[in-house]
Design a protein around this nucleic acid. Sequence first.
DNA 1: TGTCCACGGGAAAGAAAGGTGG
DNA 2: CCACCTTTCTTTCCCGTGGACA
Length: 341
Amino acid sequence: MYDSNTIIKDLRVLTESFIPRRIIHRDGQINALRDNLKPLIDKEAPRNSFIYGPPGTGKTSMSQYVVDELKAYSPVLSVYINCWLYPSRFKILYSILQSLGQIFIHRKGTPTDELLDLLRQKMKNRSCVIVLDEADQLEDDKILYDLVETPGICIIMIANKETIFYDADPRIRSRLESMERIEFRPYSTNEILDILKDRAEWGLVPHVITPVQLNKIAEHSNGDARKAIGVLRAAAETAENQDSELITDTHIEKAIPKSVSINQTKTLESLNVHQKILYGIIKSSRQVPSSDLYQKYSAVCREKDLEPLVDRTIRNHLEKLQSYNLISVSGEGRWTVYSSV
DNA sequence: TGTCCACGGGAAAGAAAGGTGG
DNA sequence: CCACCTTTCTTTCCCGTGGACA
């Protein structure tokens, strides 16, 4: 009935990047973001949003959920940008234009302002929601000013800290301060429990894990849904690999220390360029088969004018990312699949 | 049954960091 | 401060391995 799987029904549901069909315990934030975007439906000017909160509080999932919802009601365009991968003004504009289907040759020396003009031209009589995720990583804050000053563009900025760009240009600062702020607090243990129940219901075979066990995972997560889902997934995979019929307490205990990373942001900062690229690719496309990864990696390197490292070295870096618990690896040999934790 | 192809161990080359003595 | 040697970490090259697939 579930193939040979005894534990996992749908692995995708157990990944952090999976966008659930309903978002729980974020009603206030969802409504706030909806209100900000709502004017777009009547072709009026929307409000920009600044979303902040610690990792694993649902910022990215919720934004994507609301944007998807909006697109069902209105012919608005949307672009998602991970600023970790595209931190510069040029890269962001280039990547926006690319996602909007603007194809042009990347000749060296294209002035950044030219890209901005192109974008502004394209935005005439259209509107577009731009999600800037990991905005802490932005190298140049002028891009924010550019985007805010472009009619038709609505920004959703996502960051960990509220105080981002505290020392920015006063013009930009006043713009940022006028953005609608939406705070994401860490989830309570009970809220995490609800999320886990939801994921377990859709992702696991019925009755392989008990509510008490889920509660144990929730208590250990410190309000970080990403961590909690990671533990659930690791425990389920261990159980599955051992051909067990149930997830045992031992499976969970084994999974907990694996996913307790001291401080994820600290770890991320310690990565080198290549590791960041790899992590960015794996994180933004929820799952990457090994056969695609190296190609994608080389492509990003070329965009960044970087000489790609040789494939064996990449495998070394992937091993490191895995040991830092930033990515998880499933499958074997040629059929290895990398996914974000 | 042979081909394909990413994996991962190991050696060796290269690069960066650390130490020492003039 | 510099020149030179040593150590440590990173990257590359080489290659055997094993599972899917035709």
